[in-house]
Lab assay of single mutants.
Amino acid sequence: MQIFVKTLTGKTITLEVEPSDTIENVKAKIQDKEGIPPDQQRLIFAGKQLEDGRTLSDYNIQKESTSHLVLR
């Protein structure tokens, strides 16, 4: 499924993911596309910070959901 990640600069990154993917996996995909190390990434969805060990389905992130990327 596709999800979108919006950066603070207003850029939207499109990612191909599975509901069973962990947040860690998603951060690795963002690193592949954008070159941002996962330890600098914070992903926010529905006002919550997403934890590495959880999956997209844990957070009820469905296709075409948009989460926000904040850099630390």
Rank of each mutant, 00 (worst) to 15 (best):
D32C: 10
S67W: 14
Y59E: 03
T66C: 11
K33D: 03
E34R: 05
R42I: 15
I13C: 02
F45D: 01
F45H: 12
D58S: 11
S57T: 08
E51R: 08
L8E: 14
K11A: 08
L8C: 15
L56A: 01
P38N: 06
R54M: 11
Q31Y: 15
V70S: 05
V70F: 12
T55Y: 05
E64I: 13
L15R: 00
F45K: 03
L69P: 03
I36S: 03
K11N: 08
S20A: 09
L15M: 04
K48Q: 14
K63P: 15
V17G: 02
P38Y: 11
L8N: 11
E24W: 15
N25Q: 14
Q49T: 15
Q31D: 05
R72N: 12
I3H: 03
I23G: 01
E51L: 10
E24H: 10
D32S: 12
D32E: 14
Q62F: 13
T66K: 11
H68M: 12
D39R: 10
K63Y: 10
A28Y: 11
G47V: 02
K11T: 08
G53Q: 11
K33Y: 08
P38E: 06
I61L: 06
E16R: 08
R72D: 13
Q41R: 02
K48H: 12
Q62L: 12
G47K: 04
P37S: 08
T9S: 12
T55E: 03
Q62R: 11
D21L: 05
D39G: 11
G10L: 03
L43N: 00
S20M: 11
K33I: 14
E64P: 06
V70C: 11
P19R: 06
G35V: 02
I61W: 04
V70H: 15
L15V: 07
Q49Y: 13
Y59R: 01
I30W: 00
I13Q: 01
N25L: 12
E18S: 14
T66Y: 08
A46P: 01
I61R: 01
T9Q: 12
I61Q: 02
R42P: 01
H68F: 14
D21W: 10
K63S: 14
E18Q: 13
Y59C: 03
S20N: 13
I61H: 02
V17S: 02
M1E: 02
R42V: 15
N25V: 14
T7P: 03
G53F: 10
T22R: 07
I23W: 02
I36W: 13
D52L: 05
Y59D: 01
F45L: 07
L43P: 01
M1D: 02
P19K: 06
F4M: 09
S65G: 09
N25Y: 11
K48M: 14
I36G: 02
T12G: 03
T55H: 05
M1Y: 14
K6R: 10
Q49D: 14
S57C: 05
K63V: 09
N25W: 09
E64S: 12
L43I: 09
T14L: 10
Q62S: 14
P37T: 06
V70P: 02
E64H: 13
